[in-house]
Amino acid sequence: MAKVRLATVWLSGCSGCHMSFLDQDEKVLELAEKIELVYSPIADVKDFPENVDVTLVEGAVGNEEQLELLKRIRRNTRILVALGDCAVNGNVTALRNSLRNSDEEVLKRAYVENASINQAAPKQVPRLLKRVLALNEVVNVDAYVPGCPPSAELINQVLNDLLEGRTPVLEGRFKYG
């Protein structure tokens, strides 16, 4: 059987969802038998490849680079999974949406008001979006794995469902938020 081409992506999140993914412990080894990891923060691949079967996306969409990347992911992926609350609904990443002009304001708060040295907003980073977006505000999402972070067990169950061609049913398996 051909191996399933799996990608994992880290947008605006804390990496906790990826930690939880790795927390599957020995089950990662079982998983490794069935998949080929074609793109991931833990794999050295520059560009998001074509023809990906399953992509797990951690994090919300916070800047223009991520916006472009997510659209590319959607074009190249058969099953796109929102992994964790930031991807599912914005979560902590989107808290800045409550500030007016949050793209400028959040940088000011972090790098000017709360900095004791070099008080200046960084310039060499991708431009922030006016508003942090959940994945489904940008593209179609095929499955949602809520949790902050989702448990390793839940991630494992969802992945196994997907690898075996089942639509994951989450009802009764998770706690909201």
């Binding site: 949406n97 409550s98 959940a134 794995v145 809520p146 009802e171 998770f174 909201y176």
Partner: peptide
């Protein structure tokens, strides 16, 4: 079984 929101959110 609310695993995501189908409407935009108010902040």
């Amino acid at each position: 079984g609310v695993d995501h929101l189908r409407v935009d959110r108010e902040w």
